[in-house]
């Protein structure tokens, strides 16, 4: 049951553009086994340590984790609700975040489905494709030189 939840959580993260492979899911299970499931902060810290590999992913992770902790089953619906908010942050997000908006938005005409789609479409045409779109957002000594 618990393993299922973690797998599900990983799947949502993956769709949100955080590359969480099967190896990380296994590591996540080991990590939770080590720290226990009683303290929310410990579970949060353990899963971040195992599942993330860059600081920019933390925001998306935190939002997904909040939903996951409240009710793992509701997570997917929550993600759909959270997505417009994630997009609202503008340049900091990768274009990939828009792709999951499309992936998560259910095809039948739900209220949420419309908004992320249009944003994704306009974005992809206006933004040049860059392998590291976050580069402009994070402070790097090289860019300041």
């Amino acid at each position: 049951m618990f393993a299922e939840n973690i797998t599900h959580f990983a799947r949502v993260l993956r769709r949100a553009g955080v590359p969480v492979g099967p190896d990380r899911v296994i590591a996540a299970l080991e990590a939770i086994e080590a720290v226990g499931f009683s303290h929310r902060d410990d579970v949060h810290a353990a899963l971040s340590a195992v599942m993330l590999d860059r600081h920019e992913q933390q925001d998306i992770f935190d939002q997904a984790f909040d939903a996951f902790w409240r009710d793992p089953k509701l997570l997917e619906q929550m993600m759909a609700l959270l997505l417009p908010k994630i997009q609202g942050k503008g340049d900091r997000e990768r274009p990939r975040a828009n792709r999951i908006a499309e992936a998560l938005a259910p095809p039948p005409a739900e209220a949420m489905a419309k908004k992320p789609r249009t944003t994704a479409a306009t974005r992809s045409t206006t933004r040049p494709a860059s392998p590291f779109p976050t580069a402009s957002a994070c402070k790097r000594p090289t860019s300041n030189r």
Binding site: A31, A34, V35, D41, D42, H44, A45, A46, S48, A49, V50
Partner: peptide, 10 residues
């Protein structure tokens, strides 16, 4: 802090 402590423990 506790987060770093958790990471080190893991």
């Amino acid at each position: 802090d506790r987060r770093l402590g958790t990471a080190v423990f893991l």
